[in-house]
Simulated assay, not measured.
Amino acid sequence: MARLHGEPPRRSAALTTGDIKKLVAACSDDMAGLRDQALVLVCFAGALRRSELVGLDVEHVTWTPEGMRLLIIRSKTDKEGAGAEVGLPHGRFSQTCPVIALKTWLEQAEISSGPIFRKVDRWGSVHSGRLDPDAIRQILKKRAGQAQISGTIWEPITPHGMRAGFVTTAYKNGVPDEEIMGHTRHRSLATMRGYVRRTKLNTASPAGKLGL
């Protein structure tokens, strides 16, 4: 059955820093755009799962001179709810700084407590309830289309691609495994290195040493 009908596993396309910049640039300055800028930058810089992203409350953010700390109450690998903190420093550029983007969204949306990422209706009104995790997929799909970022049938554009992209980009920039795992909260080195192996297909393939 596997030989006759088997298909390669589908994996999210790893979104790089360049892709994230395009996504942010595709967002307008209205309320939905400000929310989506913050959403994309915090998700990517924090290497967050979409459930962790929508689970964030204002009370989970601690502002620091260096940037901010996010308290992740519960995640896929934290069934007991022990919690974990993720530190996000200020970005090099104001346009792509996750700290500035999040502060701007909270201030403009007048959110002082409760869920951070909320529905914005067609009239620009911000609702009180938190986004559903699937809303992150829909928002990313919309912004990717506007930014002309496309995946493939085997590597589609999904929210997990921001987390995968963080690992890929950090690895390419020489960040040690333990530092990446400390930030992404991967418990398995093998899982984390799965992204690294995919990166090596392009950057360290022996086919590039054939002199062609």
Results as ranks from 00 to 15, higher is better:
40 V>N: 01
207 A>T: 08
203 T>K: 08
77 T>W: 12
63 W>V: 09
40 V>M: 09
43 C>Y: 00
104 T>G: 03
190 A>S: 14
198 R>E: 15
101 A>S: 02
26 A>K: 02
23 L>N: 02
79 K>Q: 15
154 W>F: 11
140 L>R: 14
154 W>K: 13
42 V>T: 15
89 P>Q: 03
45 A>P: 01
96 T>K: 02
49 R>L: 04
159 P>W: 04
104 T>N: 13
77 T>M: 08
88 L>V: 10
19 D>E: 06
89 P>C: 00
92 R>A: 12
28 S>I: 00
107 E>Y: 09
196 V>T: 11
78 D>Y: 09
200 K>E: 15
47 A>H: 12
83 G>M: 06
30 D>S: 08
1 M>R: 15
103 K>A: 09
170 A>D: 12
106 L>S: 04
156 P>W: 04
142 K>A: 08
15 L>D: 01
187 R>Y: 01
147 A>N: 10
129 G>H: 15
140 L>I: 11
135 A>W: 12
162 M>D: 08
52 E>G: 10
28 S>H: 01
69 R>Q: 14
195 Y>L: 03
203 T>F: 04
160 H>Q: 08
27 C>V: 02
208 G>A: 13
126 V>K: 02
202 N>K: 11
18 G>K: 09
163 R>L: 01
81 G>P: 12
25 A>M: 02
14 A>Q: 00
29 D>I: 00
84 A>F: 03
20 I>E: 00
33 G>K: 01
14 A>W: 09
45 A>M: 03
16 T>L: 07
82 A>D: 14
7 E>R: 15
31 M>C: 00
175 V>F: 08
211 G>V: 07
195 Y>Q: 04
83 G>A: 05
5 H>W: 15
120 V>T: 12
190 A>N: 13
112 S>Q: 06
202 N>R: 11
17 T>L: 10
169 T>W: 05
173 N>P: 09
42 V>R: 02
32 A>I: 04
31 M>W: 05
145 G>P: 13
97 C>T: 03
186 H>R: 07
164 A>Y: 13
181 M>V: 07
45 A>V: 02
180 I>G: 10
180 I>D: 08
33 G>S: 02
171 Y>H: 14
192 M>Q: 15
